[in-house]
């Protein structure tokens, strides 16, 4: 059991993280300039997102190492150890590292309003922004609603972890954000942003190989922080880079264990953007 556990533990854990965190990665980034799209103007973007929750990584590595060491010495983990591991895996799935890519299409509605639709890694999100001009600087206030269907575009990841199965994921993100930025001729854009996000989730998670039945877990996480982004290109096509830093706050109770989901999350994003 212990040997079998060791051969599947680490790749499984990584896959679980990538699978579940794809959604939050998509919704962390803004990855677009502060200037509101003018009426009829269209913006297309393909953005890659990485999420690095610094505290979660440190905590999960130390705790899983400890668990792994004790498991190696035994034929079978105790019920207490199994619950500890399964609850940690569930927590990491919600607030662990991840990668995701998304496509974003934005349209200017006129009167300093624009909207965008975002699709990626099972996430569907829509935003609405209102813009304000201050000389060379442009500001925007916006809101975004996102829904995580729990379906990964990389299907094999869904079944990669044989010990902790996320049977279903339903996650709803609602966020408010503000941006301030300016344009440099037809070649550059710079923006700063602030963001607050409420992420409510409902998971069905089980660990049958560890003797733990499926549980339904429902709770929420708060995120707040800011970002800085640049776009460099010419006229219609730009390379985009953005760095988002968010503070997370929340907790999770799964398999009889409480887990803290808080910590600092670093989320770099990059991609390509077209404005037409």
């Amino acid at each position: 059991m212990a040997q079998h556990f060791s051969s599947r533990f680490w790749p499984g854990l990584l896959a679980l993280c990538a699978w579940a965190c794809a959604g939050c990665a998509v919704n962390f980034s803004e990855a677009r300039p502060a200037r509101i799209l003018r009426g009829g103007e269209v913006q297309l973007a393909q953005i890659n997102n990485v999420v690095v929750p610094t505290s979660a990584i440190g905590d999960s590595i130390s705790s899983t190492k400890s668990l792994y060491t004790s498991l190696k010495a035994q034929e079978k983990p105790s019920n207490d150890q199994a619950r500890d591991y399964a609850s940690r895996a569930t927590a990491i799935a919600l607030a662990g590292p991840g990668y995701a890519t998304h496509f974003d299409i934005g349209v200017g509605l006129g009167y300093r309003w624009d909207t965008s639709l975002r699709v990626g890694n099972g996430i569907y999100a829509a935003s609405l922004r209102k813009g304000y001009d201050f000389g060379p600087w442009a500001a925007a206030l916006g809101l975004r609603a996102g829904y995580n269907s729990g379906q990964s575009v990389i299907s094999y990841l869904d079944d990669a972890n044989g010990y902790v199965d996320l049977v279903s994921t339903k996650r709803f993100d609602g966020q408010l954000f503000a941006q301030l930025g300016r344009e440099f001729g037809e070649w550059g854009r710079l923006w700063f942003g602030a963001k607050g996000m409420y992420s409510g989730y409902t998971l069905e998670v089980g660990a049958p190989d560890l003797g733990l039945q499926i549980e339904k877990v429902s709770d929420h996480i708060w995120f707040w922080g800011g970002n800085i982004g640049v776009a460099v290109g010419f006229r219609h096509v730009f390379a985009v880079g953005e760095l988002t830093v968010l503070r997370a706050s929340g907790s999770l109770r799964a398999f009889g264990r409480d887990r803290d989901l808080g910590g600092v999350t670093i989320a770099p994003s990059w991609g390509i953007m077209g404005q037409f």
Binding site: G39, G40, E41, V107, L109, G110, L117, A126
Partner: peptide, 17 residues
């Protein structure tokens, strides 16, 4: 959403390109 966007794109003067 698609229908609304298409309507807005074709019907609103502010969005005429």
């Amino acid at each position: 959403g698609t229908v609304l966007a298409a309507t807005a794109l074709t019907g609103c003067a502010a969005m005429r390109r």
